[in-house]
Write a protein that binds this DNA or RNA. Structure first.
Lengths: 149, 149
DNA sequence: CTAGTCCTTCAAGTGACTTTAAGTTCAACC
DNA sequence: GGTTGAACTTAAAGTCACTTGAAGGACTAG
Protein backbone atom coordinates (compact mmCIF):
# COMPACT_ATOMS: atom_id res chain seq x y z
CA UNK A 1 0.00 0.00 0.00
CA UNK A 2 2.48 2.60 1.16
CA UNK A 3 6.18 2.14 0.72
CA UNK A 4 9.40 3.37 2.20
CA UNK A 5 12.06 5.69 0.94
CA UNK A 6 14.27 2.90 -0.36
CA UNK A 7 11.39 1.45 -2.39
CA UNK A 8 10.53 4.83 -3.80
CA UNK A 9 14.18 5.36 -4.67
CA UNK A 10 14.35 2.05 -6.51
CA UNK A 11 11.22 2.54 -8.57
CA UNK A 12 12.22 6.05 -9.60
CA UNK A 13 15.93 5.30 -10.01
CA UNK A 14 16.89 7.80 -7.34
CA UNK A 15 18.85 7.46 -4.12
CA UNK A 16 17.28 7.93 -0.72
CA UNK A 17 19.47 10.95 0.14
CA UNK A 18 18.35 12.59 -3.09
CA UNK A 19 14.71 12.14 -2.13
CA UNK A 20 15.35 13.68 1.28
CA UNK A 21 17.19 16.47 -0.48
CA UNK A 22 14.23 17.12 -2.77
CA UNK A 23 11.98 17.27 0.25
CA UNK A 24 14.36 19.68 1.96
CA UNK A 25 14.35 22.10 -0.96
CA UNK A 26 10.59 21.84 -1.34
CA UNK A 27 10.53 19.98 -4.64
CA UNK A 28 8.67 17.22 -2.88
CA UNK A 29 6.13 17.92 -0.12
CA UNK A 30 6.98 16.78 3.42
CA UNK A 31 6.48 13.03 3.49
CA UNK A 32 4.03 11.25 5.75
CA UNK A 33 5.66 9.41 8.62
CA UNK A 34 5.12 6.07 10.28
CA UNK A 35 4.96 5.64 14.04
CA UNK A 36 8.73 5.24 14.25
CA UNK A 37 9.32 8.41 12.24
CA UNK A 38 10.23 6.79 8.93
CA UNK A 39 8.92 8.36 5.76
CA UNK A 40 6.20 6.54 3.86
CA UNK A 41 4.98 7.20 0.35
CA UNK A 42 2.08 6.41 -1.94
CA UNK A 43 1.20 6.40 -5.62
CA UNK A 44 0.92 10.15 -5.89
CA UNK A 45 4.44 10.58 -4.53
CA UNK A 46 5.75 8.04 -6.97
CA UNK A 47 4.12 9.85 -9.86
CA UNK A 48 5.48 13.19 -8.79
CA UNK A 49 9.02 11.95 -8.30
CA UNK A 50 8.92 10.03 -11.58
CA UNK A 51 7.98 13.27 -13.29
CA UNK A 52 10.77 15.15 -11.56
CA UNK A 53 13.35 12.55 -12.54
CA UNK A 54 12.18 12.65 -16.13
CA UNK A 55 12.65 16.38 -16.13
CA UNK A 56 16.10 16.02 -14.61
CA UNK A 57 17.02 13.45 -17.24
CA UNK A 58 15.96 16.06 -19.75
CA UNK A 59 18.64 18.19 -18.16
CA UNK A 60 16.29 20.83 -16.74
CA UNK A 61 17.79 22.63 -13.75
CA UNK A 62 15.90 22.30 -10.50
CA UNK A 63 14.26 25.71 -10.80
CA UNK A 64 12.77 24.84 -14.16
CA UNK A 65 11.65 21.49 -12.80
CA UNK A 66 9.88 23.43 -10.08
CA UNK A 67 8.01 25.42 -12.73
CA UNK A 68 7.15 22.30 -14.68
CA UNK A 69 5.86 20.57 -11.57
CA UNK A 70 3.71 23.62 -10.87
CA UNK A 71 2.33 23.47 -14.41
CA UNK A 72 1.16 19.90 -13.92
CA UNK A 73 -1.21 21.25 -11.31
CA UNK A 74 -2.87 23.56 -13.81
CA UNK A 75 -3.84 21.64 -16.90
CA UNK A 76 -5.39 24.63 -18.68
CA UNK A 77 -2.13 26.48 -18.96
CA UNK A 78 0.29 23.63 -18.86
CA UNK A 79 0.95 22.62 -22.42
CA UNK A 80 2.05 25.84 -24.03
CA UNK A 81 4.07 27.00 -21.08
CA UNK A 82 5.81 23.69 -20.77
CA UNK A 83 6.50 23.84 -24.46
CA UNK A 84 8.12 27.25 -24.06
CA UNK A 85 10.38 25.97 -21.30
CA UNK A 86 11.32 22.95 -23.40
CA UNK A 87 12.09 25.07 -26.47
CA UNK A 88 14.27 27.31 -24.38
CA UNK A 89 16.12 24.37 -22.96
CA UNK A 90 16.46 22.79 -26.39
CA UNK A 91 18.34 25.88 -27.50
CA UNK A 92 20.72 25.55 -24.59
CA UNK A 93 21.33 21.89 -25.38
CA UNK A 94 22.08 22.70 -29.01
CA UNK A 95 24.56 25.37 -27.95
CA UNK A 96 26.27 22.94 -25.60
CA UNK A 97 26.56 20.34 -28.35
CA UNK A 98 28.13 22.89 -30.69
CA UNK A 99 30.59 23.87 -28.00
CA UNK A 100 31.54 20.27 -27.29
CA UNK A 101 31.99 19.53 -30.97
CA UNK A 102 34.46 22.35 -31.26
CA UNK A 103 36.23 21.02 -28.21
CA UNK A 104 36.26 17.56 -29.73
CA UNK A 105 37.95 18.76 -32.88
CA UNK A 106 40.48 20.78 -30.89
CA UNK A 107 41.37 17.74 -28.85
CA UNK A 108 41.60 15.52 -31.90
CA UNK A 109 43.86 18.10 -33.44
CA UNK A 110 46.05 18.09 -30.34
CA UNK A 111 46.38 14.31 -30.55
CA UNK A 112 47.19 14.44 -34.26
CA UNK A 113 49.88 17.01 -33.68
CA UNK A 114 51.32 14.83 -30.92
CA UNK A 115 51.47 11.91 -33.31
CA UNK A 116 53.12 14.00 -35.98
CA UNK A 117 55.70 15.46 -33.61
CA UNK A 118 56.65 12.32 -31.71
CA UNK A 119 55.93 9.63 -34.29
CA UNK A 120 55.25 6.82 -31.86
CA UNK A 121 57.87 7.45 -29.22
CA UNK A 122 58.82 10.10 -26.68
CA UNK A 123 60.74 12.93 -28.22
CA UNK A 124 62.33 15.95 -26.61
CA UNK A 125 61.45 17.97 -29.69
CA UNK A 126 57.77 18.01 -28.80
CA UNK A 127 56.75 21.63 -28.48
CA UNK A 128 52.99 21.30 -28.38
CA UNK A 129 52.56 21.77 -24.65
CA UNK A 130 54.98 24.64 -24.97
CA UNK A 131 52.85 26.25 -27.67
CA UNK A 132 49.85 26.14 -25.41
CA UNK A 133 51.56 28.61 -23.10
CA UNK A 134 51.61 31.24 -25.82
CA UNK A 135 49.15 34.10 -25.55
CA UNK A 136 45.95 33.98 -27.55
CA UNK A 137 44.96 36.79 -29.87
CA UNK A 138 42.64 39.24 -28.18
CA UNK A 139 44.07 39.15 -24.69
CA UNK A 140 46.41 41.91 -23.63
CA UNK A 141 47.23 43.37 -20.30
CA UNK A 142 47.05 47.03 -21.18
CA UNK A 143 44.61 48.49 -23.67
CA UNK A 144 46.04 48.88 -27.21
CA UNK A 145 49.36 47.37 -26.43
CA UNK A 146 50.77 44.05 -27.40
CA UNK A 147 54.13 42.74 -26.50
CA UNK A 148 55.82 39.44 -27.08
CA UNK A 149 58.96 38.29 -25.42
CA UNK B 1 58.45 44.63 -16.19
CA UNK B 2 56.29 42.97 -13.58
CA UNK B 3 52.55 43.33 -13.49
CA UNK B 4 49.74 43.04 -11.01
CA UNK B 5 46.99 40.48 -10.57
CA UNK B 6 44.45 42.52 -12.54
CA UNK B 7 46.84 42.78 -15.50
CA UNK B 8 47.57 39.07 -15.40
CA UNK B 9 43.85 38.38 -15.24
CA UNK B 10 43.20 40.53 -18.30
CA UNK B 11 45.91 39.02 -20.47
CA UNK B 12 44.88 35.47 -19.63
CA UNK B 13 41.13 36.10 -19.62
CA UNK B 14 40.82 35.11 -15.98
CA UNK B 15 39.49 36.94 -12.94
CA UNK B 16 41.70 37.97 -10.04
CA UNK B 17 39.86 35.74 -7.54
CA UNK B 18 40.41 32.79 -9.85
CA UNK B 19 44.14 33.47 -9.90
CA UNK B 20 44.21 33.63 -6.11
CA UNK B 21 42.21 30.42 -6.06
CA UNK B 22 44.72 28.68 -8.33
CA UNK B 23 47.49 29.82 -6.04
CA UNK B 24 45.59 28.52 -3.02
CA UNK B 25 45.15 25.05 -4.50
CA UNK B 26 48.76 24.95 -5.65
CA UNK B 27 48.12 25.13 -9.39
CA UNK B 28 50.15 28.33 -9.42
CA UNK B 29 53.18 28.84 -7.19
CA UNK B 30 52.97 31.47 -4.42
CA UNK B 31 53.28 34.85 -6.13
CA UNK B 32 56.04 37.34 -5.42
CA UNK B 33 54.89 40.34 -3.43
CA UNK B 34 55.57 44.05 -3.57
CA UNK B 35 56.41 46.09 -0.50
CA UNK B 36 52.75 46.72 0.19
CA UNK B 37 51.94 43.02 -0.01
CA UNK B 38 50.36 43.03 -3.44
CA UNK B 39 51.10 40.13 -5.76
CA UNK B 40 53.32 40.79 -8.76
CA UNK B 41 53.88 38.59 -11.76
CA UNK B 42 56.28 38.15 -14.67
CA UNK B 43 56.43 36.46 -18.04
CA UNK B 44 56.83 32.96 -16.64
CA UNK B 45 53.67 33.34 -14.62
CA UNK B 46 51.82 34.59 -17.65
CA UNK B 47 52.96 31.60 -19.68
CA UNK B 48 52.00 29.14 -16.99
CA UNK B 49 48.56 30.62 -16.45
CA UNK B 50 47.95 30.85 -20.18
CA UNK B 51 48.72 27.15 -20.41
CA UNK B 52 46.39 26.38 -17.53
CA UNK B 53 43.55 28.35 -19.07
CA UNK B 54 44.04 26.61 -22.40
CA UNK B 55 43.74 23.29 -20.61
CA UNK B 56 40.62 24.44 -18.83
CA UNK B 57 39.12 25.57 -22.13
CA UNK B 58 39.82 22.08 -23.37
CA UNK B 59 37.58 21.00 -20.51
CA UNK B 60 40.27 19.21 -18.52
CA UNK B 61 39.42 19.00 -14.83
CA UNK B 62 41.84 20.68 -12.45
CA UNK B 63 43.54 17.42 -11.48
CA UNK B 64 44.38 16.62 -15.07
CA UNK B 65 45.57 20.18 -15.60
CA UNK B 66 47.88 19.61 -12.67
CA UNK B 67 49.33 16.55 -14.42
CA UNK B 68 49.69 18.42 -17.68
CA UNK B 69 51.44 21.33 -15.98
CA UNK B 70 53.83 18.84 -14.37
CA UNK B 71 54.54 17.31 -17.77
CA UNK B 72 55.61 20.65 -19.18
CA UNK B 73 58.48 20.51 -16.70
CA UNK B 74 59.76 17.25 -18.15
CA UNK B 75 60.07 17.52 -21.89
CA UNK B 76 61.39 13.99 -22.37
CA UNK B 77 58.21 12.34 -21.19
CA UNK B 78 55.74 15.06 -21.93
CA UNK B 79 54.42 14.36 -25.38
CA UNK B 80 53.18 10.80 -25.13
CA UNK B 81 51.78 11.19 -21.66
CA UNK B 82 49.98 14.35 -22.58
CA UNK B 83 48.64 12.55 -25.60
CA UNK B 84 47.28 9.77 -23.42
CA UNK B 85 45.50 12.28 -21.18
CA UNK B 86 44.06 14.01 -24.23
CA UNK B 87 42.86 10.77 -25.80
CA UNK B 88 41.19 9.81 -22.56
CA UNK B 89 39.48 13.15 -22.34
CA UNK B 90 38.47 12.98 -25.99
CA UNK B 91 36.56 9.80 -25.23
CA UNK B 92 34.70 11.51 -22.42
CA UNK B 93 33.79 14.43 -24.68
CA UNK B 94 32.48 12.09 -27.36
CA UNK B 95 30.33 10.29 -24.79
CA UNK B 96 28.93 13.57 -23.57
CA UNK B 97 28.08 14.64 -27.10
CA UNK B 98 26.24 11.38 -27.73
CA UNK B 99 24.31 11.83 -24.52
CA UNK B 100 23.34 15.38 -25.39
CA UNK B 101 22.24 14.38 -28.86
CA UNK B 102 19.87 11.84 -27.41
CA UNK B 103 18.59 14.51 -25.06
CA UNK B 104 18.16 16.89 -27.96
CA UNK B 105 16.00 14.46 -29.86
CA UNK B 106 13.93 13.69 -26.78
CA UNK B 107 13.29 17.37 -26.21
CA UNK B 108 12.45 17.96 -29.87
CA UNK B 109 10.04 15.08 -29.61
CA UNK B 110 8.44 16.60 -26.55
CA UNK B 111 7.93 19.89 -28.39
CA UNK B 112 6.49 18.12 -31.42
CA UNK B 113 4.03 16.22 -29.26
CA UNK B 114 3.03 19.48 -27.61
CA UNK B 115 2.33 20.99 -31.01
CA UNK B 116 0.32 17.98 -32.09
CA UNK B 117 -1.73 17.91 -28.90
CA UNK B 118 -2.45 21.58 -28.51
CA UNK B 119 -2.37 22.77 -32.11
CA UNK B 120 -1.37 26.33 -31.41
CA UNK B 121 -3.43 27.14 -28.37
CA UNK B 122 -3.79 25.99 -24.79
CA UNK B 123 -5.86 22.88 -24.45
CA UNK B 124 -6.97 21.04 -21.35
CA UNK B 125 -6.60 17.78 -23.25
CA UNK B 126 -2.83 17.97 -23.15
CA UNK B 127 -1.60 14.86 -21.41
CA UNK B 128 2.10 15.03 -22.15
CA UNK B 129 3.20 16.28 -18.77
CA UNK B 130 0.87 13.71 -17.30
CA UNK B 131 2.56 10.96 -19.29
CA UNK B 132 5.91 11.95 -17.90
CA UNK B 133 4.74 10.88 -14.46
CA UNK B 134 4.27 7.30 -15.64
CA UNK B 135 6.87 4.74 -14.56
CA UNK B 136 9.60 3.80 -16.95
CA UNK B 137 10.24 0.19 -17.91
CA UNK B 138 12.86 -1.36 -15.69
CA UNK B 139 12.02 0.42 -12.46
CA UNK B 140 10.08 -1.44 -9.81
CA UNK B 141 9.80 -1.27 -6.09
CA UNK B 142 9.62 -4.98 -5.35
CA UNK B 143 12.71 -6.94 -4.32
CA UNK B 144 13.56 -7.77 -7.94
CA UNK B 145 16.66 -5.68 -7.56
CA UNK B 146 18.83 -5.21 -10.56
CA UNK B 147 22.21 -3.77 -11.26
CA UNK B 148 22.52 -0.10 -10.53
CA UNK B 149 25.22 1.95 -12.11
C1' DC C 1 45.14 65.58 0.28
C1' DT C 2 41.58 63.36 -1.69
C1' DA C 3 39.03 60.47 -4.69
C1' DG C 4 38.75 56.45 -6.89
C1' DT C 5 40.46 52.23 -8.34
C1' DC C 6 42.84 48.32 -7.32
C1' DC C 7 44.46 45.22 -4.07
C1' DT C 8 44.35 42.20 0.44
C1' DT C 9 42.23 38.20 3.37
C1' DC C 10 38.67 35.47 4.89
C1' DA C 11 34.19 33.54 4.61
C1' DA C 12 30.26 32.10 2.46
C1' DG C 13 27.51 30.94 -1.71
C1' DT C 14 26.56 28.22 -6.12
C1' DG C 15 24.09 23.47 -8.08
C1' DA C 16 22.73 19.18 -7.27
C1' DC C 17 23.62 16.29 -5.10
C1' DT C 18 26.99 12.49 -2.36
C1' DT C 19 29.27 10.95 1.67
C1' DT C 20 30.02 10.34 6.46
C1' DA C 21 28.87 9.74 11.23
C1' DA C 22 26.23 8.37 14.87
C1' DG C 23 22.23 6.78 16.26
C1' DT C 24 17.09 4.51 15.61
C1' DT C 25 13.62 1.38 13.65
C1' DC C 26 12.13 -2.57 11.37
C1' DA C 27 11.58 -7.40 9.77
C1' DA C 28 13.14 -11.88 10.17
C1' DC C 29 14.90 -15.73 12.37
C1' DC C 30 15.76 -18.79 16.53
C1' DG D 1 11.84 -12.66 23.83
C1' DG D 2 16.36 -11.75 21.94
C1' DT D 3 19.47 -10.84 18.34
C1' DT D 4 21.00 -9.87 14.06
C1' DG D 5 21.49 -6.81 10.07
C1' DA D 6 19.44 -4.02 6.68
C1' DA D 7 17.22 0.11 6.18
C1' DC D 8 16.01 4.15 8.20
C1' DT D 9 16.82 8.94 10.83
C1' DT D 10 19.29 13.72 11.20
C1' DA D 11 22.93 16.86 10.66
C1' DA D 12 27.03 18.19 8.76
C1' DA D 13 30.61 18.18 5.58
C1' DG D 14 32.47 17.19 0.93
C1' DT D 15 32.37 17.69 -4.21
C1' DC D 16 33.93 21.03 -8.38
C1' DA D 17 35.58 25.19 -9.93
C1' DC D 18 35.05 28.85 -9.04
C1' DT D 19 32.10 33.59 -7.72
C1' DT D 20 30.55 36.99 -4.50
C1' DG D 21 30.74 39.81 -0.49
C1' DA D 22 32.59 42.22 3.53
C1' DA D 23 35.94 45.00 5.56
C1' DG D 24 39.85 47.15 5.10
C1' DG D 25 44.82 48.46 2.99
C1' DA D 26 47.69 50.15 -1.20
C1' DC D 27 48.41 52.80 -5.20
C1' DT D 28 47.80 56.54 -8.63
C1' DA D 29 46.04 60.90 -10.72
C1' DG D 30 44.87 65.40 -10.06
Amino acid sequence: MTFRIGDLARCTRTNPPTIRYYEEIGLLPPADRRDGGQRCYGEEDRRRLTFIRQCREFGFPIDQVRSLVALTQDSDRSCMEARAIAVDHLGAVRDKIAELRKLQSNLADFVRRCDAACAGGPGPDCTILHDMAEPVAGASRSPEREQRQ
